[in-house]
Amino acid sequence: MKSLAIRNLSKTYFDAYAGAHVDAVRDVSLEVPEGEFVSIVGPSGCGKTTILNMVAGFIAPSSGEILVGDHAVAGPGPDRGVVFQSFALFPWKTVLENVAFGPKMRGVGKPERERIAREFLSLAGLSHAAERYPNELSGGMQQRVGVARALANEPDVLLMDEPFASVDAQTRMTLQEELTRIWQERRSTVLFITHDVPEAVFLANRVVVLSKGRVLEEVDIPLPRPRRWDALVESDDFKALANQVLQLVRSA
């Protein structure tokens, strides 16, 4: 586990249709200390996914730097695990093979990497589905595999890009509760992107509100853990925080 630091990060695209340069991310600085869960929330087009793609190393920043621990990011790498909105599971690999993929790339032998994969599958409550193919699973189960696959590689930082946006509302709440449980057990450093304000507040230690490529405000979320929806929906603290963040997002 390591900390994540983003310093003066900017990204400028050339938009071929508009025929002009667009500033997607402008001078963003952000610290995620070791073992902390930070959500970035903002309306679509505010640059939050661009930030995550730069942290993951999928696209290069125009300026600024990104540090994992004290190492500067230069391209994708196994120190940063990514959970995708589209799940991005390998359709031709079973659930077990998907989760064992990271250890396999590290050169871990077959029995050992299968043991690791089974351990993380049981953490995600998926032991029964190990031999199935992703397309045989529901969306919610597929994303559990996505989370298990990222964690099984023991990354220093976990990056999650609207991971629950394409599952139904019921499943989403279950997955959010499971994610807080797993986070409490493992204390990963997490950067979580979402446009869903209650989700951001529910999960995080701190919520960063983004607007037009800039950090608008950071809001600490001192809610007690473990967090559960049936308790929190009644909680005045939760409502007040969610309301505060919502106002910020709407003013954005």
């Binding site: 391209g75 994708p76 990514v82 589209s86 991005a88 390998f90 031709w92 993929f101 590290r106 696959r149």
Partner: peptide, 28 residues
Amino acid sequence: PVELHRAALSLGASKPRILWEVVLPGAL
């Protein structure tokens, strides 16, 4: 899908391994 390339890269796969584990089965 570009996401599968990215997923493999962020799980530590090298170029030749991506060819074998991602591109070839995806194109099959």
